[in-house]
């Protein structure tokens, strides 16, 4: 299996961290990510007036001596985050799309493990596989071996697969889905994930035939996953209509992600992983 992520790219990715779209993790396990509630970390957050019942150990006696007011010191909470990288291995993912998806998945895994996240992997397609979250950068090679052993093909069925997947994850997990997102009912999975308080990041990878089909003439266009077919005579107007339909679908995904607070980014399968990871996703705020 070819190397999914070069050592040079790994070195350039090392200082970056995965950024959740809008909110911190909601878990009881201590970790490296700042939570929304006050916790027990070493980082001071603020003073609060004492209320009966507060732990007396948190009283700031120095402040009492200066101001004769009883105030309690509060600290930031540092919690653990679960990151799930989902890679679409279905038949619709052509070789360029799958190659870029694997590179991005390896990069996300590397960055996540370096950021002390609990990182899991899942694949969609003929065999929907799930690797439970692990910690530590030493697990990265094992995860890549697991990822490389997946076989492409089959149907992804994004809505059903994502629904079953997000149910396994702890709340407020960061789920990165690397797919072409060419599913008609994909938006239903987004709503369910939002309901489960998860944070989704959608990386939509489209290749050249997806964006502007090069075919002309009468064709039997058959869905490679569902075998649904349409017989059309492709001409300039038909291709124009197709591009409008694709743009409408992508726009719908983008709007729903924006409404739910999810990450969404569309990239070309022919783009280099360095370009996608270090420029596009950094500019979009996925990596910081």
């Amino acid at each position: 299996m070819p190397e999914l992520l070069s050592s040079q790219l790994r070195a350039r990715l090392s200082p970056l961290r995965l950024v959740s779209p809008h909110q911190g993790p909601q878990t009881n396990l201590a970790g490296a990510h700042k939570g929304r509630r006050r916790g027990r970390s070493m980082e001071f957050a603020e003073h609060r007036d004492y209320s009966p019942g507060d732990d007396l150990r948190h009283l700031d006696w120095a402040a009492f001596a200066r101001s004769e007011r009883l105030v309690v010191k509060e600290f930031e909470s540092e919690l653990e985050r679960t990151v799930m990288v989902v890679v679409d291995f279905s038949a619709s993912m052509s070789e360029p799309k799958r190659r870029l998806a694997l590179s991005c998945a390896a990069a996300f895994s590397w960055v996540g493990l370096l950021g002390q996240d609990r990182l899991g992997l899942a694949t969609l397609g003929r065999e929907a596989r799930y690797h439970p979250p692990v910690r530590g950068r030493g697990q990265w090679g094992r995860l890549m071996d697991w990822l490389g052993s997946s076989h492409p093909g089959g149907r992804a069925d994004l809505p059903a697969s994502l629904k079953s997947l997000v149910q396994r994850l702890p709340r407020s997990s960061l789920v990165l889905v690397l797919s072409d997102w060419l599913e008609e009912e994909a938006s239903s999975a987004l709503a369910f994930a939002h309901h489960r308080k998860h944070q989704l990041a959608l990386l939509q990878i489209l290749d050249e035939p997806d964006r502007s089909p090069p075919w002309l003439g009468p064709l039997r266009l058959e869905d490679i996953e569902t075998a649904e077919f349409r017989q059309l005579s492709l001409e300039d107007q038909t291709l124009s209509f197709y591009q409008q339909a694709l743009e409408q679908h992508c726009q719908s995904l983008r709007q729903q992600c924006g409404r739910l607070g999810f990450h969404y980014h569309r990239c070309a399968a022919e783009a280099q992983p360095e370009e996608v990871l270090l420029r596009q996703l950094v500019e979009r705020g996925w990596l910081a």
């Binding site: 619709s92 052509s94 072409d180 060419l182 599913e183 008609e184 035939p209 997806d210 089909p213 075919w215 003439g217 009468p218 064709l219 039997r220 266009l221 058959e222 869905d223 490679i224 569902t226 649904e228 077919f229 349409r230 017989q231 059309l232 197709y242 339909a245 694709l246 679908h249």
Partner: peptide
Amino acid sequence: HRLQPVAAAFLW
């Protein structure tokens, strides 16, 4: 009508 596999038939 030549057979042409596509990623998404719903767009067509």
